[in-house]
């Protein structure tokens, strides 16, 4: 059968001098259109490397990434990334940061006025239109990440890649932003792949949770379906049996079967 995004036997080894480290081993995963998949694992398990491979920022040693049955091995706007530390260009305003991608992606398909409207539309989606003329240094961390999401969404990616997007935020802002991402996913139906190390975040947002074993030579340990209807409400889920069961499963995987070995 054909799948939307397919990770096919991905291995990744880093070579430094004579020492080689195998980071990822035999990663196979298929993601359907419109699906929200999280990859969770302890730090150092290579989940960010995996995301970089999908984004094309790093190349896999063997294996490859197929998007709509076409191999992708260089970065492109069809796999837009929301980076952990927002990565907005500090010398550009919020508007210009989003426009940078829009101008490239829609250079021939949209007129100048349409591109402008499209930038503003995406800023509105993340409720950041009011700050369009501010520079990144003038807005809060949560707002920066919103703009980062707007920048990625504005490229109309086939797959939206989120690299621990809420990792650097405080708990309240994080919850708020998670709700925003859920609402956007509901509204736009994007295919989303998210890297996270937060169990609650993974269960709350995902359709499926991919659990990685510890590195070196990290593999996919287990894939968990999250059978919760959408739209999901944070408060109601806190006592939902299915939610708690999923949460329990992920916690068991991470803390019992694949404990983080600090010496490793």
């Amino acid at each position: 059968m054909t799948s939307y995004l397919k990770l096919d036997h991905i291995d990744k080894t880093f070579t430094r001098g004579s020492a080689t480290t195998e980071v990822l081993k035999d990663i196979n995963l298929t993601i359907e259109m419109g699906e929200y998949v999280s990859i969770i694992g302890h730090s150092g398990c290579g989940k960010s490397t995996l995301l970089n491979i999908i984004a094309g920022l790093t190349t896999a040693t063997t294996g490859g990434v197929l998007l709509e049955n076409r191999e992708v091995n260089s970065p492109g706007p069809d796999r837009a990334v929301v980076f952990q530390n927002h990565s907005l260009l500090p010398w550009l305003t919020v508007y210009e940061n989003v426009k940078l991608g829009v101008d490239k992606v829609f250079a021939s398909s949209k007129t100048r006025a349409e591109r402008d409207a499209w930038v503003m539309h995406n800023l509105n989606l993340v409720q950041m239109a009011h700050a369009k003329d501010k520079r990144p240094s003038e807005i809060s961390g949560g707002m920066k990440q919103r703009v980062g999401i707007a920048r990625a969404l504005a490229m109309e990616p086939k797959v939206l890649l989120l690299d621990e997007p809420f990792g650097a935020l405080d708990a309240l802002t994080r919850a708020h932003l998670q709700d925003s991402v859920m609402a956007l996913h509901q509204k736009l139906g994007n295919t989303i792949l998210m890297i996270t190390h937060d169990v609650d975040e993974a269960v709350l947002l995902s359709d499926r949770i991919v659990m990685m074993t510890n590195g070196p030579s990290a593999r996919i340990g287990e894939v968990l379906e999250v059978p919760l209807a959408r739209p999901r409400k944070r408060l109601e889920l806190a006592t939902n049996a299915a939610y708690l069961k999923c949460r329990q499963r992920v916690l068991e995987f991470l803390y019992e079967r694949h404990r983080f070995v600090e010496a490793a």
């Binding site: 094309g56 970065p75 492109g76 706007p77 980076f83 530390n85 260009l89 991608g101 490239k104």
Partner: peptide, 14 residues
């Protein structure tokens, strides 16, 4: 130049 900016440029395909 931070790697982040290079990554952004790569994704946008400047």
């Amino acid at each position: 130049i931070p790697q982040d900016y290079r990554n952004v440029a790569a994704v946008v395909q400047l």
